[in-house]
Computed example of a mutant assay.
Amino acid sequence: MSLIINKSFDNNNNVWNVSLIGEVDIYTSSEFKSSLIEMIQDKQVDIRIDASSLDYIDSTGLGILIGILKRLKEEEKDIYIISPKKNIEKLLSITGLDKIFRLEG
């Protein structure tokens, strides 16, 4: 499977909006990590990830999100995961990451 990352900066709300389509796994994780690092090097603000079209994320992808969140927390910023599918929501719950990331919708 592949991964499509659509990202944009919302000047009005001072937030990165990211839409993930497909899967974040060992094959797509380097692209995912590079994209997120590029964003926070540009502007270290909250990141809102639309996960409604994210079909799968493995431990590699979760590790990347945790690493980025640690960097954002230094500036008191967060990662919001918006509208995750049931399987992603269950994974975040099982791993306890639903307590670390902000889940919406």
Rank of each mutant, 00 (worst) to 15 (best):
G67I: 07
G22I: 01
K86R: 13
Q44T: 11
E74D: 14
E23I: 04
K7Q: 10
D98H: 12
E104R: 12
I5N: 07
I79G: 00
D50K: 01
D50H: 00
I82P: 04
K90S: 13
I26R: 13
S29V: 14
K7E: 10
I88V: 08
K86M: 12
I47H: 00
E89K: 15
Y27I: 05
D98V: 03
S30M: 11
S8I: 08
G63M: 09
F32D: 02
Y27M: 11
I79M: 02
K33D: 09
S34P: 09
D50Y: 00
G105W: 05
I40E: 05
S19K: 15
K43Q: 03
L92F: 06
G61W: 03
I5F: 05
A51R: 03
N13Y: 08
I88L: 09
V15E: 08
K73L: 12
L92Q: 01
E23S: 12
S59L: 09
I94V: 15
R71F: 05
S83A: 15
G61N: 08
E76T: 09
N14L: 07
D50P: 00
K70C: 06
K90L: 14
R48Y: 11
N87E: 13
S2P: 08
D98W: 02
I100W: 05
S52N: 11
L97K: 09
S19M: 10
D98T: 03
G105L: 11
K43D: 00
E76M: 12
S19V: 10
N17V: 07
I47E: 00
I82L: 14
D42E: 12
E31R: 11
R102L: 15
M39L: 13
D25E: 04
D25A: 03
I66P: 05
G96L: 04
I79R: 01
S59C: 11
F101P: 00
S2T: 14
